[in-house]
């Protein structure tokens, strides 16, 4: 795994270099500023697999660096681990909102750094394998538009406020202290019949439909601090502040209304009707970070079960399917 580590403190750079080498990461490049990192990234012909950024640096800070890189094709999805002394929630929130994959606070524990890097290494290997199996979908080539949708994948959704990758959402919860999570709730949203709806659809249609659902959820969460992530199929996992005031039914109605307003269509002009089901929220008060992740997973299961349990008579179902697929 080729790593670029950026920190303005020479001692940290030396420390990272020694630790990473000892952990078996032989290909490590160091930079002392955001600008130097950008210059290195631009000059390299063999892209980096993993980026380690400090936040507090003179000139360009680590969060601006993440934002800038997420807008490039090469580094839109590259795992970025923030290694920073800034433990305040505002920094954690800003880093994940900008596109950070994970967050570790200084002074870091070497074992913890090792375990986070192993997870990233596994993710990098998995993505490379997927890329080798299906190079067309990863190349961004035009014919990817017509490839059948792989609905099991957790999608990387861009340009929607508060929407981050699923792995980042789990890492966000893991990073937060009990006190920081107090008052927050987690819940999930599932698109009813997603498997049916997108059977035969293209990857392009699936990606755009899920982006629209993400946008509907994001729009309805606008007054709050929140993160949303696509969790595969038609499922979305969400965390929101002021959790006690969250009203499941009200939110479900608001998302349904927003989806109707969006007036969605398939590529061939047929209308696309999406019904979103919202799970009961789980309050995170005094939960540990691990328990919060488990609560999130539980709400995903609940949202799916509630979506599956919705009564649909065979006649209605047939009409629904005909409307979608002609």
């Amino acid at each position: 795994m080729k790593i670029l580590a950026v920190d303005d403190d020479e001692i940290i750079r030396e420390l990272l270099s020694e630790i990473l080498n000892a952990l078996g990461y032989a290909s490590v490049v160091l930079a002392e500023s955001g600008q130097e990192a950008l210059d290195i990234l631009e000059a390299t012909t063999d892209p980096f697999d993993c980026l380690l950024f400090d936040i507090q640096m003179p000139g360009m800070d680590g969060i601006s660096l993440v934002s800038q890189l997420r807008n490039t094709v090469e580094y839109a999805r590259t795992p970025i681990l923030m290694i920073t002394a800034m433990a305040d929630r505002k920094y954690v929130d800003s880093a994940f909102a900008a596109g950070a994959t994970d967050y570790i606070t200084k002074p870091f524990d070497i074992q913890e750094l090792d375990s986070r890097l192993k997870l990233i290494d596994a993710l990098v290997t998995e993505r490379k394998q997927q890329q080798d199996r299906n190079p067309v979908n990863w190349s961004g080539a035009d014919n990817a538009i017509m490839n059948p949708a792989d609905t099991s994948q957790r999608l990387h959704i861009v340009d929607v406020d508060g929407v981050i990758d699923y792995l980042s959402l789990e890492n966000y919860l893991l990073q937060m202290s009990r006190a920081a999570l107090f008052g927050n709730c987690v819940f999930s949203v599932a698109v009813k019949d997603a498997k049916h709806i997108f059977r035969g659809a293209s990857q392009y249609e699936f990606q755009f439909a899920m982006t629209d659902v993400a946008e509907a959820i994001s729009d309805c969460l606008k007054p709050f601090k929140f993160f949303v992530a696509h969790a595969g199929e038609g499922d979305f996992a969400c965390v929101r502040d002021t959790g006690r005031s969250f009203d499941q039914k009200e939110f479900q109605t608001a998302v349904a209304q927003r989806l109707r307003e969006m007036d969605l269509y398939y590529c061939d002009g047929r209308p696309m009707v999406l019904h979103a089901v919202v799970s009961e929220p789980v309050q995170l008060d005094w939960r540990s970070s691990r328990s919060s992740v488990n609560a999130l997973l539980k709400t995903l299961q609940n949202a799916e079960s509630e979506a599956n349990a919705l009564e649909t008579s065979p006649k209605q179902n047939g009409a629904f399917t005909r409307r979608l697929f002609g």
């Binding site: 403190d9 001692i11 940290i12 920073t84 200084k106 002074p107 524990d109 070497i110």
Partner: peptide, 11 residues
């Protein structure tokens, strides 16, 4: 102080 805080513990 920020720089010392970031490394001293690990060392």
């Amino acid at each position: 102080a920020h720089k010392i805080a970031g490394t001293a513990g690990t060392l």
